[in-house]
Design a protein around this nucleic acid. Structure first.
Lengths: 219, 219
DNA sequence: CTCTGCGGGTATACGGCGTATACCCATACT
DNA sequence: AGTATGGGTATACGCCGTATACCCGCAGAG
Protein backbone atom coordinates (compact mmCIF):
# COMPACT_ATOMS: atom_id res chain seq x y z
CA UNK A 1 0.00 0.00 0.00
CA UNK A 2 2.70 2.48 0.92
CA UNK A 3 4.60 1.66 -2.23
CA UNK A 4 1.48 2.06 -4.31
CA UNK A 5 0.96 5.43 -2.67
CA UNK A 6 4.54 6.37 -3.49
CA UNK A 7 4.09 5.36 -7.10
CA UNK A 8 0.93 7.40 -7.25
CA UNK A 9 2.63 10.44 -5.74
CA UNK A 10 5.55 10.03 -8.12
CA UNK A 11 3.15 10.07 -11.02
CA UNK A 12 0.63 12.63 -9.97
CA UNK A 13 1.97 14.52 -7.01
CA UNK A 14 1.18 14.45 -3.34
CA UNK A 15 -1.93 16.61 -3.62
CA UNK A 16 -3.44 14.14 -6.02
CA UNK A 17 -2.61 11.24 -3.76
CA UNK A 18 -5.92 11.13 -1.94
CA UNK A 19 -7.32 8.34 0.14
CA UNK A 20 -10.03 7.80 -2.39
CA UNK A 21 -7.65 7.86 -5.32
CA UNK A 22 -5.30 5.43 -3.69
CA UNK A 23 -8.17 3.12 -2.77
CA UNK A 24 -9.18 3.24 -6.37
CA UNK A 25 -5.79 2.16 -7.61
CA UNK A 26 -5.79 -0.65 -5.08
CA UNK A 27 -9.30 -1.60 -6.17
CA UNK A 28 -10.60 -1.28 -2.72
CA UNK A 29 -13.01 0.83 -0.71
CA UNK A 30 -11.56 4.09 0.62
CA UNK A 31 -12.35 3.04 4.15
CA UNK A 32 -10.31 -0.11 3.76
CA UNK A 33 -7.17 2.00 3.94
CA UNK A 34 -8.03 3.00 7.45
CA UNK A 35 -7.40 -0.55 8.55
CA UNK A 36 -3.73 0.14 7.84
CA UNK A 37 -3.24 3.79 8.70
CA UNK A 38 -5.02 6.04 11.13
CA UNK A 39 -5.29 8.96 8.73
CA UNK A 40 -3.82 10.45 5.60
CA UNK A 41 -1.03 12.22 7.46
CA UNK A 42 0.14 8.89 8.77
CA UNK A 43 0.16 7.49 5.28
CA UNK A 44 2.42 10.34 4.27
CA UNK A 45 4.59 9.71 7.31
CA UNK A 46 5.06 6.17 6.11
CA UNK A 47 5.78 7.23 2.58
CA UNK A 48 8.48 9.53 3.88
CA UNK A 49 9.94 6.80 6.03
CA UNK A 50 10.01 4.49 3.07
CA UNK A 51 11.95 6.80 0.80
CA UNK A 52 14.22 8.11 3.53
CA UNK A 53 14.96 4.54 4.55
CA UNK A 54 16.10 3.88 1.01
CA UNK A 55 18.89 6.45 1.16
CA UNK A 56 22.01 4.44 0.59
CA UNK A 57 24.70 4.48 3.20
CA UNK A 58 27.91 5.48 1.51
CA UNK A 59 30.20 2.48 1.45
CA UNK A 60 33.90 2.59 2.15
CA UNK A 61 34.50 1.81 -1.50
CA UNK A 62 32.67 4.92 -2.49
CA UNK A 63 34.74 6.77 0.05
CA UNK A 64 37.96 5.51 -1.46
CA UNK A 65 36.97 6.49 -4.96
CA UNK A 66 35.70 9.88 -3.97
CA UNK A 67 38.75 11.28 -2.23
CA UNK A 68 42.12 9.85 -1.60
CA UNK A 69 41.92 8.39 1.82
CA UNK A 70 43.45 10.50 4.54
CA UNK A 71 43.32 10.22 8.29
CA UNK A 72 39.84 9.37 9.53
CA UNK A 73 39.54 12.62 11.37
CA UNK A 74 39.83 14.52 8.11
CA UNK A 75 37.09 12.55 6.44
CA UNK A 76 34.02 14.01 7.99
CA UNK A 77 33.56 16.52 5.24
CA UNK A 78 33.69 13.99 2.42
CA UNK A 79 31.54 11.63 4.40
CA UNK A 80 28.81 14.17 4.96
CA UNK A 81 29.02 15.26 1.40
CA UNK A 82 28.58 11.74 0.11
CA UNK A 83 25.70 11.05 2.41
CA UNK A 84 23.86 14.16 1.36
CA UNK A 85 24.46 13.49 -2.30
CA UNK A 86 23.21 9.95 -1.76
CA UNK A 87 20.07 11.41 -0.24
CA UNK A 88 19.72 13.62 -3.25
CA UNK A 89 19.97 10.66 -5.58
CA UNK A 90 17.50 8.65 -3.57
CA UNK A 91 14.91 11.41 -3.36
CA UNK A 92 15.33 12.69 -6.86
CA UNK A 93 12.67 10.40 -8.27
CA UNK A 94 10.22 11.47 -5.59
CA UNK A 95 9.65 15.14 -6.14
CA UNK A 96 6.86 15.19 -3.57
CA UNK A 97 9.26 14.10 -0.86
CA UNK A 98 10.57 17.58 -0.28
CA UNK A 99 7.23 19.00 0.71
CA UNK A 100 6.33 15.84 2.54
CA UNK A 101 9.48 15.85 4.65
CA UNK A 102 9.30 19.53 5.36
CA UNK A 103 5.74 19.36 6.58
CA UNK A 104 6.17 16.43 8.96
CA UNK A 105 5.67 17.65 12.49
CA UNK A 106 7.71 15.05 14.31
CA UNK A 107 10.78 13.18 13.23
CA UNK A 108 10.40 9.44 12.82
CA UNK A 109 13.12 6.97 13.88
CA UNK A 110 14.21 6.60 10.27
CA UNK A 111 14.63 10.32 9.94
CA UNK A 112 16.39 10.57 13.26
CA UNK A 113 18.73 7.77 12.24
CA UNK A 114 19.73 9.64 9.11
CA UNK A 115 20.40 12.81 11.04
CA UNK A 116 22.26 10.87 13.67
CA UNK A 117 24.50 9.37 11.02
CA UNK A 118 25.26 12.80 9.63
CA UNK A 119 26.09 14.16 13.03
CA UNK A 120 28.16 11.23 14.06
CA UNK A 121 30.29 11.67 10.96
CA UNK A 122 30.96 15.20 12.13
CA UNK A 123 31.74 14.12 15.65
CA UNK A 124 34.11 11.51 14.28
CA UNK A 125 35.83 14.32 12.46
CA UNK A 126 36.43 15.99 15.77
CA UNK A 127 33.92 18.80 15.48
CA UNK A 128 32.60 20.23 18.70
CA UNK A 129 29.03 19.64 19.76
CA UNK A 130 28.48 23.33 19.37
CA UNK A 131 29.68 23.34 15.82
CA UNK A 132 27.83 20.17 14.90
CA UNK A 133 24.68 21.75 16.15
CA UNK A 134 25.16 24.86 14.11
CA UNK A 135 26.20 22.86 11.08
CA UNK A 136 22.99 20.88 11.17
CA UNK A 137 20.97 24.04 11.34
CA UNK A 138 22.96 25.58 8.54
CA UNK A 139 22.51 22.50 6.41
CA UNK A 140 18.86 22.57 7.26
CA UNK A 141 16.69 20.90 4.69
CA UNK A 142 19.57 20.78 2.31
CA UNK A 143 20.63 17.67 4.16
CA UNK A 144 17.89 15.87 2.26
CA UNK A 145 19.45 16.80 -1.02
CA UNK A 146 17.00 19.25 -2.41
CA UNK A 147 16.85 22.93 -2.95
CA UNK A 148 13.78 24.97 -3.49
CA UNK A 149 13.53 26.30 -6.94
CA UNK A 150 13.57 29.88 -5.96
CA UNK A 151 13.07 31.61 -9.23
CA UNK A 152 10.02 30.40 -11.02
CA UNK A 153 9.73 32.88 -13.85
CA UNK A 154 6.40 34.19 -15.03
CA UNK A 155 5.17 32.35 -18.09
CA UNK A 156 5.68 34.16 -21.38
CA UNK A 157 2.84 34.80 -23.80
CA UNK A 158 2.60 32.56 -26.85
CA UNK A 159 2.59 35.22 -29.50
CA UNK A 160 6.22 35.92 -30.48
CA UNK A 161 5.82 39.68 -30.74
CA UNK A 162 4.09 39.89 -27.39
CA UNK A 163 6.69 37.62 -25.92
CA UNK A 164 9.51 39.82 -27.05
CA UNK A 165 7.76 42.85 -25.63
CA UNK A 166 7.15 41.09 -22.34
CA UNK A 167 10.76 40.02 -22.17
CA UNK A 168 11.94 43.54 -22.84
CA UNK A 169 9.86 45.12 -20.15
CA UNK A 170 10.93 42.36 -17.83
CA UNK A 171 14.59 43.05 -18.48
CA UNK A 172 14.00 46.75 -18.00
CA UNK A 173 12.17 46.27 -14.71
CA UNK A 174 14.73 43.95 -13.16
CA UNK A 175 18.15 45.04 -14.31
CA UNK A 176 20.13 42.78 -12.02
CA UNK A 177 18.14 39.72 -12.98
CA UNK A 178 18.58 40.73 -16.58
CA UNK A 179 22.29 41.06 -16.15
CA UNK A 180 22.57 37.68 -14.57
CA UNK A 181 20.39 36.00 -17.16
CA UNK A 182 22.28 37.44 -20.06
CA UNK A 183 25.83 37.17 -18.83
CA UNK A 184 26.04 34.09 -16.62
CA UNK A 185 27.85 31.28 -18.41
CA UNK A 186 24.79 29.13 -18.78
CA UNK A 187 22.72 32.07 -20.07
CA UNK A 188 19.65 30.88 -21.85
CA UNK A 189 19.23 27.24 -20.99
CA UNK A 190 18.39 26.18 -17.47
CA UNK A 191 21.21 25.60 -15.05
CA UNK A 192 22.61 22.33 -13.88
CA UNK A 193 20.77 21.66 -10.67
CA UNK A 194 23.22 19.07 -9.50
CA UNK A 195 26.17 21.36 -9.88
CA UNK A 196 24.22 24.13 -8.25
CA UNK A 197 23.37 21.94 -5.35
CA UNK A 198 26.87 20.63 -4.88
CA UNK A 199 28.26 24.11 -4.90
CA UNK A 200 25.90 25.37 -2.25
CA UNK A 201 26.64 22.31 -0.17
CA UNK A 202 30.35 22.88 -0.50
CA UNK A 203 29.95 26.48 0.46
CA UNK A 204 28.40 25.38 3.72
CA UNK A 205 30.83 22.58 4.39
CA UNK A 206 33.74 24.88 3.65
CA UNK A 207 32.44 27.34 6.18
CA UNK A 208 31.97 24.70 8.82
CA UNK A 209 35.41 23.29 8.17
CA UNK A 210 37.06 26.68 8.40
CA UNK A 211 35.35 27.41 11.66
CA UNK A 212 36.34 24.02 12.95
CA UNK A 213 39.96 24.59 12.07
CA UNK A 214 39.82 28.00 13.67
CA UNK A 215 38.59 26.45 16.88
CA UNK A 216 35.45 28.52 16.64
CA UNK A 217 32.69 28.39 19.17
CA UNK A 218 29.45 30.25 19.43
CA UNK A 219 30.11 32.24 22.57
CA UNK B 1 -9.81 41.61 2.44
CA UNK B 2 -6.18 40.62 1.92
CA UNK B 3 -5.22 42.08 5.27
CA UNK B 4 -8.08 40.28 6.96
CA UNK B 5 -6.88 37.09 5.35
CA UNK B 6 -3.39 37.77 6.64
CA UNK B 7 -4.66 38.38 10.13
CA UNK B 8 -6.61 35.16 9.94
CA UNK B 9 -3.59 33.21 8.74
CA UNK B 10 -1.45 34.77 11.43
CA UNK B 11 -3.92 33.61 14.02
CA UNK B 12 -4.93 30.23 12.75
CA UNK B 13 -2.54 29.18 10.02
CA UNK B 14 -2.83 29.03 6.29
CA UNK B 15 -4.68 25.72 6.22
CA UNK B 16 -7.41 27.20 8.36
CA UNK B 17 -7.65 30.24 6.16
CA UNK B 18 -10.43 28.97 3.95
CA UNK B 19 -12.67 30.95 1.66
CA UNK B 20 -15.62 30.15 3.83
CA UNK B 21 -13.81 31.05 7.01
CA UNK B 22 -12.58 34.31 5.61
CA UNK B 23 -16.04 35.16 4.29
CA UNK B 24 -17.32 34.50 7.74
CA UNK B 25 -14.92 36.92 9.35
CA UNK B 26 -15.84 39.53 6.77
CA UNK B 27 -19.53 38.83 7.41
CA UNK B 28 -20.15 38.07 3.82
CA UNK B 29 -21.11 35.16 1.62
CA UNK B 30 -18.24 32.89 0.56
CA UNK B 31 -18.99 33.60 -3.07
CA UNK B 32 -18.59 37.32 -2.54
CA UNK B 33 -14.84 36.79 -2.27
CA UNK B 34 -14.76 35.63 -5.83
CA UNK B 35 -15.62 39.11 -6.97
CA UNK B 36 -12.14 40.11 -5.81
CA UNK B 37 -9.97 37.06 -6.48
CA UNK B 38 -10.29 34.34 -9.05
CA UNK B 39 -9.54 31.51 -6.64
CA UNK B 40 -7.94 30.75 -3.32
CA UNK B 41 -4.46 30.44 -4.77
CA UNK B 42 -4.71 33.98 -6.03
CA UNK B 43 -5.73 35.13 -2.60
CA UNK B 44 -2.60 33.53 -1.24
CA UNK B 45 -0.56 35.15 -4.00
CA UNK B 46 -1.83 38.49 -2.85
CA UNK B 47 -1.17 37.73 0.77
CA UNK B 48 2.41 36.89 -0.12
CA UNK B 49 2.79 40.05 -2.14
CA UNK B 50 1.47 42.05 0.73
CA UNK B 51 3.93 40.76 3.30
CA UNK B 52 6.87 40.66 0.91
CA UNK B 53 6.12 44.21 -0.10
CA UNK B 54 6.40 45.20 3.53
CA UNK B 55 10.01 44.11 3.80
CA UNK B 56 11.85 47.27 4.69
CA UNK B 57 14.59 48.46 2.45
CA UNK B 58 17.67 48.91 4.57
CA UNK B 59 18.38 52.60 4.83
CA UNK B 60 21.81 54.12 4.62
CA UNK B 61 21.57 54.98 8.29
CA UNK B 62 21.15 51.35 9.12
CA UNK B 63 24.12 50.66 6.93
CA UNK B 64 26.25 53.15 8.77
CA UNK B 65 25.35 51.77 12.15
CA UNK B 66 25.81 48.18 11.11
CA UNK B 67 29.36 48.33 9.81
CA UNK B 68 31.79 51.11 9.54
CA UNK B 69 31.43 52.44 6.07
CA UNK B 70 34.08 51.27 3.64
CA UNK B 71 34.32 51.53 -0.10
CA UNK B 72 31.01 50.82 -1.80
CA UNK B 73 32.41 47.80 -3.51
CA UNK B 74 33.07 46.14 -0.16
CA UNK B 75 29.57 46.69 1.07
CA UNK B 76 27.68 44.09 -0.82
CA UNK B 77 28.00 41.55 1.92
CA UNK B 78 26.67 43.80 4.65
CA UNK B 79 23.98 45.06 2.35
CA UNK B 80 22.72 41.58 1.51
CA UNK B 81 22.92 40.59 5.12
CA UNK B 82 20.83 43.54 6.21
CA UNK B 83 18.26 42.96 3.54
CA UNK B 84 17.84 39.34 4.46
CA UNK B 85 17.61 40.10 8.14
CA UNK B 86 15.03 42.75 7.34
CA UNK B 87 13.06 40.11 5.47
CA UNK B 88 13.33 37.88 8.48
CA UNK B 89 11.97 40.59 10.73
CA UNK B 90 9.14 41.37 8.37
CA UNK B 91 8.07 37.77 7.92
CA UNK B 92 8.56 36.70 11.48
CA UNK B 93 5.01 37.55 12.48
CA UNK B 94 3.65 35.61 9.54
CA UNK B 95 4.68 32.02 10.12
CA UNK B 96 2.52 30.85 7.24
CA UNK B 97 4.52 32.97 4.80
CA UNK B 98 7.28 30.42 4.48
CA UNK B 99 5.03 27.72 3.10
CA UNK B 100 3.09 30.24 1.11
CA UNK B 101 6.16 31.67 -0.58
CA UNK B 102 7.69 28.30 -1.23
CA UNK B 103 4.61 26.95 -2.88
CA UNK B 104 4.00 29.84 -5.28
CA UNK B 105 4.54 28.64 -8.79
CA UNK B 106 5.45 31.91 -10.41
CA UNK B 107 7.24 34.90 -8.99
CA UNK B 108 5.23 38.09 -8.74
CA UNK B 109 6.72 41.51 -9.52
CA UNK B 110 7.07 42.21 -5.82
CA UNK B 111 9.03 39.03 -5.33
CA UNK B 112 11.14 39.68 -8.39
CA UNK B 113 11.87 43.18 -7.15
CA UNK B 114 13.17 41.83 -3.89
CA UNK B 115 15.40 39.34 -5.62
CA UNK B 116 16.56 41.96 -8.04
CA UNK B 117 17.56 44.21 -5.17
CA UNK B 118 19.56 41.42 -3.60
CA UNK B 119 21.32 40.65 -6.83
CA UNK B 120 22.03 44.22 -7.67
CA UNK B 121 23.71 44.65 -4.30
CA UNK B 122 26.00 41.82 -5.28
CA UNK B 123 26.68 43.23 -8.70
CA UNK B 124 27.48 46.57 -7.11
CA UNK B 125 30.01 44.74 -5.02
CA UNK B 126 31.70 43.59 -8.18
CA UNK B 127 30.63 39.98 -8.11
CA UNK B 128 30.50 38.20 -11.44
CA UNK B 129 27.18 37.20 -12.95
CA UNK B 130 28.26 33.63 -12.52
CA UNK B 131 28.89 34.05 -8.83
CA UNK B 132 25.73 36.05 -8.28
CA UNK B 133 23.78 33.29 -9.87
CA UNK B 134 25.31 30.66 -7.67
CA UNK B 135 24.97 32.82 -4.62
CA UNK B 136 21.26 33.19 -5.18
CA UNK B 137 20.86 29.47 -5.50
CA UNK B 138 22.93 28.90 -2.41
CA UNK B 139 20.93 31.40 -0.47
CA UNK B 140 17.80 29.78 -1.76
CA UNK B 141 14.80 30.25 0.47
CA UNK B 142 17.02 31.56 3.20
CA UNK B 143 16.84 34.86 1.40
CA UNK B 144 13.38 35.23 2.88
CA UNK B 145 14.76 34.97 6.35
CA UNK B 146 13.45 31.66 7.47
CA UNK B 147 14.89 28.27 8.10
CA UNK B 148 12.96 25.08 8.29
CA UNK B 149 12.88 23.67 11.73
CA UNK B 150 14.57 20.48 10.90
CA UNK B 151 14.43 18.63 14.12
CA UNK B 152 10.96 18.36 15.48
CA UNK B 153 11.47 15.90 18.29
CA UNK B 154 8.92 13.23 19.08
CA UNK B 155 6.64 14.26 21.90
CA UNK B 156 7.46 12.76 25.26
CA UNK B 157 4.90 10.86 27.31
CA UNK B 158 3.31 12.68 30.23
CA UNK B 159 4.11 10.18 32.95
CA UNK B 160 7.53 11.14 34.39
CA UNK B 161 8.79 7.57 34.70
CA UNK B 162 7.79 6.73 31.19
CA UNK B 163 9.29 9.94 29.98
CA UNK B 164 12.61 9.15 31.53
CA UNK B 165 12.57 5.70 29.98
CA UNK B 166 11.68 7.11 26.59
CA UNK B 167 14.45 9.65 26.86
CA UNK B 168 16.95 6.99 27.78
CA UNK B 169 16.13 4.73 24.89
CA UNK B 170 16.16 7.76 22.65
CA UNK B 171 19.63 8.71 23.77
CA UNK B 172 20.80 5.14 23.33
CA UNK B 173 19.39 4.87 19.83
CA UNK B 174 20.85 8.13 18.56
CA UNK B 175 24.22 8.61 20.16
CA UNK B 176 25.30 11.57 18.09
CA UNK B 177 22.06 13.43 18.68
CA UNK B 178 22.43 12.59 22.36
CA UNK B 179 25.93 13.93 22.42
CA UNK B 180 24.91 17.14 20.79
CA UNK B 181 21.91 17.62 23.01
CA UNK B 182 23.83 17.06 26.18
CA UNK B 183 27.02 18.89 25.40
CA UNK B 184 26.18 21.81 23.16
CA UNK B 185 26.32 25.09 25.10
CA UNK B 186 22.62 25.67 25.00
CA UNK B 187 21.87 22.09 26.07
CA UNK B 188 18.40 21.80 27.44
CA UNK B 189 16.57 24.92 26.45
CA UNK B 190 15.81 25.60 22.82
CA UNK B 191 18.35 27.42 20.75
CA UNK B 192 18.33 31.00 19.66
CA UNK B 193 16.81 30.90 16.21
CA UNK B 194 18.03 34.33 15.29
CA UNK B 195 21.60 33.55 16.11
CA UNK B 196 21.28 30.24 14.33
CA UNK B 197 19.93 31.94 11.27
CA UNK B 198 22.53 34.65 11.22
CA UNK B 199 25.30 32.12 11.52
CA UNK B 200 24.07 30.04 8.64
CA UNK B 201 23.67 33.17 6.58
CA UNK B 202 27.19 34.27 7.40
CA UNK B 203 28.52 30.88 6.50
CA UNK B 204 27.07 31.29 3.04
CA UNK B 205 28.10 34.89 2.60
CA UNK B 206 31.60 34.06 3.78
CA UNK B 207 31.83 31.36 1.19
CA UNK B 208 30.62 33.61 -1.57
CA UNK B 209 32.97 36.37 -0.54
CA UNK B 210 35.97 34.06 -0.45
CA UNK B 211 35.17 32.76 -3.87
CA UNK B 212 34.75 36.27 -5.12
CA UNK B 213 38.10 37.32 -3.76
CA UNK B 214 39.68 34.25 -5.27
CA UNK B 215 38.32 35.19 -8.67
CA UNK B 216 36.36 31.95 -8.76
CA UNK B 217 34.19 30.93 -11.64
CA UNK B 218 32.17 27.84 -12.26
CA UNK B 219 34.07 26.45 -15.22
C1' DC C 1 -35.78 61.91 -15.40
C1' DT C 2 -35.60 57.68 -17.04
C1' DC C 3 -32.82 53.82 -18.62
C1' DT C 4 -29.07 50.99 -18.44
C1' DG C 5 -24.72 48.84 -17.24
C1' DC C 6 -22.26 47.04 -13.73
C1' DG C 7 -19.73 46.44 -9.33
C1' DG C 8 -20.42 43.74 -5.70
C1' DG C 9 -23.39 41.14 -3.01
C1' DT C 10 -26.56 36.51 -2.48
C1' DA C 11 -28.61 31.59 -3.03
C1' DT C 12 -28.17 27.22 -4.39
C1' DA C 13 -25.82 23.30 -5.80
C1' DC C 14 -22.08 20.09 -7.34
C1' DG C 15 -18.36 17.16 -6.81
C1' DG C 16 -14.43 16.32 -4.15
C1' DC C 17 -12.23 15.46 0.17
C1' DG C 18 -11.10 13.02 4.96
C1' DT C 19 -13.16 10.05 7.99
C1' DA C 20 -16.83 8.30 11.91
C1' DT C 21 -19.80 4.55 12.56
C1' DA C 22 -21.71 0.24 11.77
C1' DC C 23 -21.84 -3.99 9.64
C1' DC C 24 -19.81 -8.41 7.59
C1' DC C 25 -17.24 -12.46 6.68
C1' DA C 26 -13.38 -15.84 6.21
C1' DT C 27 -9.84 -17.80 8.43
C1' DA C 28 -6.99 -19.40 12.51
C1' DC C 29 -6.97 -20.85 17.11
C1' DT C 30 -9.16 -22.84 21.41
C1' DA D 1 -17.67 -26.13 17.27
C1' DG D 2 -17.23 -21.63 18.63
C1' DT D 3 -15.21 -17.49 18.63
C1' DA D 4 -12.17 -13.62 18.17
C1' DT D 5 -10.19 -10.86 14.78
C1' DG D 6 -8.01 -8.88 10.60
C1' DG D 7 -9.43 -6.84 6.70
C1' DG D 8 -12.99 -5.65 3.69
C1' DT D 9 -17.77 -2.88 2.75
C1' DA D 10 -21.78 0.59 2.95
C1' DT D 11 -23.46 4.70 4.27
C1' DA D 12 -23.26 9.23 5.81
C1' DC D 13 -21.49 13.71 7.75
C1' DG D 14 -19.35 17.98 7.43
C1' DC D 15 -15.92 20.40 5.35
C1' DC D 16 -13.83 22.35 1.18
C1' DG D 17 -13.41 25.18 -3.46
C1' DT D 18 -16.19 27.02 -6.79
C1' DA D 19 -19.79 27.08 -11.15
C1' DT D 20 -24.02 29.18 -12.21
C1' DA D 21 -27.70 32.16 -11.78
C1' DC D 22 -29.92 35.79 -9.73
C1' DC D 23 -30.38 40.61 -7.63
C1' DC D 24 -30.01 45.32 -6.27
C1' DG D 25 -28.41 50.14 -5.93
C1' DC D 26 -25.84 53.56 -7.88
C1' DA D 27 -23.45 56.31 -11.94
C1' DG D 28 -23.70 58.28 -15.91
C1' DA D 29 -25.86 58.69 -20.76
C1' DG D 30 -29.82 59.87 -23.42
Amino acid sequence: MVSTAIALADARGLEATTMRGLADVLQVTPMALYKHVAHREQLIDEMVDHVVGAIAEPSDDAAASDTERTADAEDWRAHVRRRVLAARRALRTHPWAQNAIETRTTASPVVLAYMDALMSAMFDGGLSADLVHHAMHALSTRMWGFTRDVMPTPTAPDDPAERAAALNSFLAAYPAIARMMTTAPHAGQGCDDDEEFALALDLLLDGVQRRHEAGWNSA
